[in-house]
Nucleic acid binder design. Structure first.
Lengths: 193, 193, 193, 193
DNA sequence: CATGAATGAGAGTTCATTCAT
DNA sequence: GATGAATGAACTCTCATTCAT
């Protein structure tokens, strides 16, 4: 597969991402993607053999990019509280975003039990986030920014609350104030206000 | 519509519920329901015109029954802590149940924005549960069972955590111990252990 | 499946038979049959799920009818030679027929090794014919009509010759005289001319 | 067309032969051949324009080689019986061979009436074989090895029996003993045992 | 009311064939 | 000459939906 093919593949993945963001996972057909990409029916099959495979690769790109973003955006002299707030602000954006997010599609994809165990991005991200938050809280406790007895438990609690808001956002909506209120509530739990 | 028709409709709804519990919402076709009910294709259309309508009615029955259950199962002299624990135990069961639960189907159904505003059962139940928990905590605080400053905030926090566990359960699994740990964590927040 | 369905199924089989007779087995698509029957795409699938299944049922009908024909057409006082000649005349007709014969289709079908062992009509008919011819020759020897040392061997030889002419007919043609000449040759082998 | 091109063409024909031997004629696609040859899709079209043309050329090579083989393998002082037995042994091998034979493909190819008249290899070989056998029998009769009244008729009979066994072999199998028995039967007809 | 045959739209998939590079 | 990406036609198969009985 030449240079050009790789570019085309990337192009398809980008375009397909939009389709998944718009329609979720299950309702998307090969035809939808073909039309969005404005390529021929057979052309798509040169690169991918099913919506599932395409989605899997979209997810892979997505999570790689997510990792990148994380690394870059934190300045050297940020405190634990700064970083935690930054993280929560990002999460809030993600929770409130209705368009251009794969959240729904990802949930739908993993509702299928067959997909749950193969390289589960959702789980990976949840666990990674818990670890990061835990570290941040620990650091914050040491520096006197936070107060907390059970850092790991608290980190997990944070993540479940965020997850709860995410699913709520996708199923019956949530307002910016609602998210703020919850974030303040959990922050208060570690002595922040 | 005669007595017999009503019974048949109920029968279809019960059977369809099983189908939705098994396959979620989006993957269910009229054909699936026809076959599960062992009725004729045309017959189903006499009662319902789409899987969506059927699901809506299944949901309605479901939430009515849920209300019934709640009413019945609480004894007269239970304390606030008793009732809260009972409630959490029920939630745990619901979270861990993989079969015979509509959770997935409900999420899938409400992922469709068109469905989110029409009589949203998920929202109704969330709000109702928050109110109940809030009342229980307030009662518990008065009786000295619990300690809590922001009862409403805490109630909401409880619910988001539960919601988070529910979606996690459906997308990459959760163990009984995981649920217990989280419940203990939030209970500790109101002075219980 | 009601009376009417059964008739329709028969109608489809009859029509499909013509298609197979015309195009052989491999080149026939469900679409061909749908068009020949003038029914809808989906309609055909109510009755059959593949060209293979249809062909199998066409074959079944065909061989049942073949059996019927055999039973009927022999008069009471026919001699062994009469019957043998009748049989050979039928075979000749079959060999020379280009249209309205499944010969090609049957060969194509059984070229697929997967089909060779499941209820192989070709083998069944070959073996049955050998037995019949053997009996006829034996009877004819007893009545002095035929001369033969190895009746079974001769019967088999007859059938291989007929089979050879059949395949030749389908692959590069054979003339009526050619068939006659071969039949005379084998008949001479049992003392007939 | 340069030297290199000719070699490439030969290479394609050799490889295609294997494909036809494996899959018959009808099921083979240009794609199959492209993949087997490991050349580009467009590349194949530089040399051939259809599977039919390729098969035709494969056949041509095949029959040329067949002629070569015949010429070589017969020693100077062989008797008619020796040569006939050699020929029959070759035929037996051909009949029993399941892999690496074009038999099925050839039959499938000539089932198409359009192909039957253009330079029909099957017919050519049949007729040639009849002539050779006839000559051999005649020679054998003169030398006292064989007894036979109608040499041409007998030669034809031989060939139809062989053809019958070939098609049987491809449609429902034949055992080595079966072939031997038939060969012995026809040999007995010319006074050999 | 109830049936289930029938329809046709639409999704998935495979290939022969072309053509810019 | 050679490549392989691209196209579009053709097939298979499934279902929502209708309708005569």
């Amino acid at each position: 597969m030449g240079e050009k093919s790789i570019q085309k593949k990337q192009y398809i993945l980008e375009t397909a991402r939009k389709v998944f963001a718009e329609k979720g996972f299950k309702r998307v057909t090969m035809k939808d993607i073909v039309e969005a990409c404005d390529i021929s029916r057979g052309g798509l099959y040169l690169y991918f053999e099913s919506t599932e495979q395409i989605f899997r690769e979209v997810l892979k790109r997505e999570s790689e990019e997510a990792d990148d973003v994380f690394g870059k955006s934190i300045s050297e002299d940020a405190t634990a509280a700064d970083i935690l707030l930054l993280f929560l602000r990002e999460q809030k954006k993600e929770i409130l975003r209705k368009r251009n997010t794969l959240t729904k599609a990802i949930y739908e994809f993993y509702f299928d039990e067959e997909n749950q165990n193969k390289e589960n991005v959702l789980k990976k991200q949840f666990d990674a986030a818990v670890r990061i938050i835990e570290k941040l809280i620990e650091t914050g406790v040491e520096s006197g920014e936070f107060v907390c007895e059970d850092c790991k438990g608290t980190a997990r609690n944070f993540m479940y609350v965020l997850e709860g808001m995410k699913i709520r956002s996708q199923t019956y909506g949530i307002r910016s104030e609602d998210v703020d209120r919850e974030i303040l509530f959990v922050l208060k739990g570690i002595g922040v206000d």
